[in-house]
């Protein structure tokens, strides 16, 4: 498979804390890659490096390179806003804006200059269909997004991310605040979305990684311990630490 994201010798520091240590990996396109590992192992940090959300945290310094479709996203000539448009993100807590369902989805396209009502209507419908939410909300698009359930809110956030037509979708423990049925819906959705998008997900839930992903990366203390096809990593881990983690001996 074609690699869309190439990470080379990435080191990241929060102040003096060495959060990511010499990470190199290729993430293939149109597949789901899962990052697993115990809390504080750096998996979320790496995910947030892929759309440069770490820039917001004061005292962060990044060394090495991350290329997405061949362009170094930490290069000098990079447009961070365009990068984030291209690399969408879904957060741990559903975070729809306190606006209507329609305005939530239309927020991104409006940012990037689309004003035609007709065009916005189309984008809102196709994004909500893409996030498997259209049938539930099509009759009350003007209602506040905060009136939706947690699982619906999270799918709305996915729709909102899809509305700016990204290539990559980052999911930062996107189901950890949801009930099992909503979680299942999001997992099914991820399976459908991987036909069009490259998905990178961080998850605390090993079963989820095993169920959903094509590749799995196991992190420990800011390092990559093992990176393999999901089936292989869970059935036949090469590293003792991976085996200990997936069999529940720590973490």
């Amino acid at each position: 498979m074609q690699a869309l994201i190439e990470i080379e010798r990435l080191n990241l520091f929060y102040g003096s804390f060495h959060a990511l240590k010499n990470i190199s990996m290729d993430i293939p396109e149109k597949a789901i890659t899962a990052f697993i590992g115990p809390s504080g192992c750096g998996k979320s940090t790496l995910l947030r490096s892929l759309n440069r959300m770490n820039d917001m945290i004061p005292g962060t310094s990044t060394h090495g390179s991350i290329k997405i479709a061949g362009a170094d996203i930490y290069g000098k000539d990079i447009d961070v806003e365009a990068l984030r448009k291209n690399v969408g993100m879904v957060f741990q807590q559903p975070n729809p804006f306190p606006k209507s369902i329609y305005d939530n989805v239309a927020y991104g396209p409006r940012l990037h200059g689309i004003t035609s009502r007709h065009k916005l209507d189309e984008i809102v419908e196709s994004s909500l269909r893409g996030a498997a939410l259209w049938n539930e909300v099509k009759d009350h698009l003007k209602r506040s997004a905060l009136s939706l359930s947690g699982g619906q809110q999270q799918r709305l956030c996915i729709a909102r991310a899809l509305a700016v037509e990204p290539d990559v979708l980052l999911m930062d423990e996107a189901t950890s605040a949801l009930d099992p049925i909503s979680t299942l819906k999001i997992e099914e959705l991820a399976q459908e979305l991987k036909a069009k998008y490259t998905i990178v997900m961080v998850t605390h839930n090993m079963h989820q990684a095993a169920r959903v992903s094509n590749q799995t990366v196991f992190f420990l203390n800011g390092e990559v311990v093992e990176y393999a096809e999901t089936e292989k990593l869970f059935s036949n881990p090469q590293d003792q630490r991976t085996e200990d983690y997936i069999s529940g001996r720590f973490g």
Binding site: M53, F97, G108, A161
Partner: peptide
């Protein structure tokens, strides 16, 4: 205003100016 709204806006490619005027002030 909760930081999660700000994060959501930036993650969609908003500039700081857009985030302040379209999310922070309305919220």
């Amino acid at each position: 205003v909760p930081a999660k709204f700000k994060d959501a806006s930036y993650a969609l490619g908003a500039t700081r100016f857009q985030t302040v005027f379209r999310v922070m002030l309305p919220s």
